[in-house]
Design a binder for these strands. Structure first.
Lengths: 257, 257
DNA sequence: AACTGTGAATGGATTCACAGCA
DNA sequence: TGCTGTGAATCCATTCACAGTT
């Protein structure tokens, strides 16, 4: 449990090291832990064991402990983790101690829904501005915000200190929008358009493609169907008919990314 | 390998070759390759090199070749891959030779958007029915479909051969909806509600949590900011606003990964 | 000459199993 | 005793580099 921190070892109790560089897989799970912790806090739990939190987050406990150990986080042996403290630590690491301003570009079908999505507001973000390229949409009011023309992006992004952009435009427009976001100083992009974006070094892009998620499920449907109708191994290549071949999506683990 | 084409044959399972069991990471990338291939086909390309396809899909060429080799797919050395053939192979493996019926539960903000999302229709899926638990929403017409009460789910799922369900309800309702989907014979679930679902073995769940995606980006923002400025600070219980908010100005020069 | 397919090497992530602390 | 934190072992994924094919 002894953790080293780069630069200074003041024995400040409860202090968190600067920013440990976490494995990406860990980073991707921290938000899920955070959500589970908030649930626990609301239901009156002050402490929680790794087993309990792992169950609430849909992972196994060894993974959870390893993830938290990367934070340098302290649980108490024999007891568990302090819920409130762990929430603080994770929120700090994720940079959620400030409410981050987000620009949303594209107020079509999906954009409308995102603009109204309460989950953003309740989990650390503030949609600070809406943009669209279609003049007939500019001026429209959505969830208390007026849609601005994309040309105003740079100006507003600077004024509102916007560092995160969400692209909810058609694929054809996405690269151009990304370029404009980057030019306006945005360094993180969440892209809902079904296309690859190219951005300069130092800009992070995450992609959410709804159809791709369904296609992955479709693969598993296809495989399940082919397994039930072809109990024995298929032709070609000496397949292993091992029962362990299934990707177990049991009652405890139901999530993947 | 004697991989036959899906072609106009019926979806009779006995007639098709067994599916190779692909690494999950490969499965998750195949839809992206497929999208890139469709783009290439539309722009008149008959063949494509691993280098070219990799660029279009946003991966490196070694990974792409390894992925495709798992399919048993044949490119031609010295030439590349046949675009049309590769599309067929990937669509076959992903189970997209049939248009799969999908049930969408929850027609709130997000549900509305999903119901109208053209990408589902153009990429292998048919939204066959909409459901909601709120009686005031039942009967409403969205994108040509009438919203049904969730109680009718089992009946309609059977009639429409629905094996895939999408949950776009609030978190509080999601587990109950998942149970009902499973009871209705659904074996794959795409969950947009921010919660962990528990489902029986054999049911696949994928989760999309929009706030989590932003929180992951937030982490990277935080890290970028901490690299360019402050050394070490942390919350010691009382939240002190972090020094140096964020200089949103430019600065796309900085870190690597 | 150009490109694929793949064994081998590397690097990450997950899991195991237990030492050590409350 | 009950639980965390962590080295060691294992598993999976990525990358390298080149043999082999057209």
């Amino acid at each position: 449990m002894s953790q080293q921190r780069p630069g200074g070892q003041s024995g400040q109790p409860g202090a968190v090291p600067a920013l440990p560089d976490l494995p990406e897989a860990t980073v991707a799970r921290l938000p899920e832990y955070l959500r589970a912790l908030h649930n626990l806090a609301e239901t009156g739990h002050d402490t929680v064991s790794s087993e309990g939190l792992a169950a609430a987050a849909g992972v196994n406990s060894a993974k959870l402990r390893k993830d938290l150990s990367h934070l340098g986080s302290y649980g108490t042996r024999g007891v568990g983790y302090d819920v409130a403290l762990l929430i603080e630590q994770i929120e700090y690491v994720l940079g959620l101690t400030q409410r981050r301003a987000v620009a949303l570009v594209g107020v079509g079908n999906l954009g409308h829904a995102l603009a109204g999505y309460a989950g953003f507001a309740t989990r650390g973000f503030r949609i600070a501005a809406l943009f669209d390229a279609d003049p007939s949409r500019v001026g429209e009011q959505i969830s208390g915000l007026v849609v601005r023309h994309i040309e105003d992006l740079a100006e507003i992004a600077a004024a509102e200190s916007i560092a995160i952009g969400v692209i909810a435009t058609p694929a054809a427009a996405a690269q151009s929008v990304a370029d404009q976001l980057v030019a306006a100083g945005v360094t993180s992009i969440l892209n809902f358009a079904p296309c690859v974006l190219s951005v300069p070094e130092g800009v992070d892009v995450r992609k959410v493609d709804l159809a791709i998620e369904l296609q992955i499920l479709s693969f598993h449907e296809h495989r399940k169907a082919s397994l039930t109708s072809l109990p024995a191994t298929g032709p070609t290549g000496g397949l292993t008919a091992l029962p362990g071949g299934l990707s177990a999506t049991g009652t405890e683990e139901a999530v993947g990314t």
